[in-house]
Amino acid sequence: MQSKYKVGLMRLNLLAGALLLGLLAPQAPAFASALLLWLGVIWLAVTAALLEFSHRRPAILPWQLLPGLLLMALLWTAPERHALWLWLWPAALLLPQPVWMLAVNLLLAALSWWSLHRLLGAEQALFAAFALLTLTILAVARRRQPQRPSVRQRVRLAPGLPLWSAYQLYEDLPRERARCHREGVHGELLLLRVPRHQLWPMAQQLCRQLHGFENCYRLDQRTLAALLLNRDAQLARERREELLANLATPRKARVIALEAIDSLDASLGRFQEQQDSLAIDMEVTHG
């Protein structure tokens, strides 16, 4: 069951929003609100540009806080022009966000209402407050928890790609080592250091060359790892040479037989210090 979700439509929606704010911005009389509107345009456009259907770039918190802050600032600087947008607050609360951010947004919403209350007059302001409160309850009822970090650790980083988080490697490695030992299979861990901007293309190249049962891991922004399984050391060497020849040259690589890994952290440490472009550990090292 492949997901029918279309990221393109959401991008279109983001761009339409950016366009509308862009049309409104030149009409704003005050410099401050024009500036805020342009900031909104930038936020929407950049979000649209970076949007994709993967866990490659989980949203960072300051970025998520920005729309709320912009909305509050707009209502504060020019309440008479943007009063209509008070009702965007329930939608802002609907966004997946942690509880503390929800609290911050509620506070910002209250401040926005305060900036409008003089404009509306006492009765309407009171009624608007209650209406906003009701919609807030509704929005909170419909809110979804953001993904918990524990869930994010166990998922594939992109749909359809056997690319997993570093956490998963710590889970898989002892199991694979025991299994290879039991079944008499030659297993190796391949570590690759790549330039930061080439990490994703390289990960895709690597995943394409792996068997279905071999996994690839993203250890940090510059390091990839893969588990390679072969019937014996001879086959493993041929396969490894072919694989490395087919990859766009990584900065450096290290191949470690699973039996030779005492602890993953120690192996990663040695990889950090490694000067040569390729190192191979096949012997059991006792340090």
Binding site: Q2, Y5, F53, S54, P96, Q147, R154, V155, R156, P159
Partner: peptide, 11 residues
Amino acid sequence: RQRALLLATDP
């Protein structure tokens, strides 16, 4: 998006 992504990537 977040829900669909989780469905597509969570084994």
